[in-house]
Amino acid sequence: MRVRRIATRVLAAALALVATWQVAVWVSGAPAFILPSPLRVASAWWQHAGEIVRHLGVTVAEIVLGLGCGLVLGVVSALLVGYFRPARRWLLPVLVASQAVPVFALAPVLVLWLGYGMASKVGMATLIIYFPVTVALLDGLRRTEPGWLDLARTMTARGDGGPRHRDRIAVLRHIQLPAALPAFASGVRVAASVAPIGAVVGEWVGSSAGLGYLMLHANGRMQIDLMFAALATLAAFGVALWFGVDAALRRLVPWQADSFDSMED
């Protein structure tokens, strides 16, 4: 029922947005090559449906692959930094410094190195989500309730010296990682909302397919209605992606109480 409630709300919000847009067109009297009416955009969408869906497929693939790569890389880095002290000393400053370089400025370099195809866009999306995911998981790993760690220490203690490697892995797996999941989930939510930015920026810099490419191309040919149709498609996918990821994350951390849920009654 939650899903239906959210879907209704998203739909209502979209309708309100479209209505505002239509009113703006009427009131401003802007010509169609500046601001096309929703109806015009819808008809352009219908006309170019095949093309739009094909480009959407490319962009979605870039975003999903970028999310996958960024999540894997982020999780691996966070685990390395969290688990190995030398990694913490050397990798963490590099990680932070890497954020001083604006990711967008790297887009031309990525296209130069990885080509006009999908790889440079996946690389771009990966880069843009890598940092929030790593930092979120690292924060979560760092804030394990100390009492749980004490408890684990008494449970795994043995008379033959210090803590063993296997015990540390067991504590990481059974306590620190699950405890970090809520924080990690926040990082993944951020990732899901910024990954499309990476893909589209990559497409703008140089590509032959994808919604970003289609928008740029339509703009150049003064097909403003098609440009808006592509933009609306991208927005709709972005919203769907966010809600899908949010639902999956709620299932991943069901023990995490959501105070917003209880406030809504």
């Binding site: 309730e145 009492g147 749980w148 004490d150 408890l151 684990a152 008494t154 449970m155 795994t156 015990d167 067991a170 504590v171 059974h174 306590i175 699950p178 405890a179 999941l181 951390v253 023990w255 995490q256």
Partner: peptide, 25 residues
């Protein structure tokens, strides 16, 4: 060791919490 705080792990059910030591070992 038993602390003043119950230190139960919120993601495990009661049975999972009771047998936590076995899982860690």
């Amino acid at each position: 060791w038993m602390d003043q705080r119950d230190l139960l792990l919120p993601w495990l059910d009661v049975l999972g919490n009771v047998t936590l030591g076995a899982r860690l070992r």
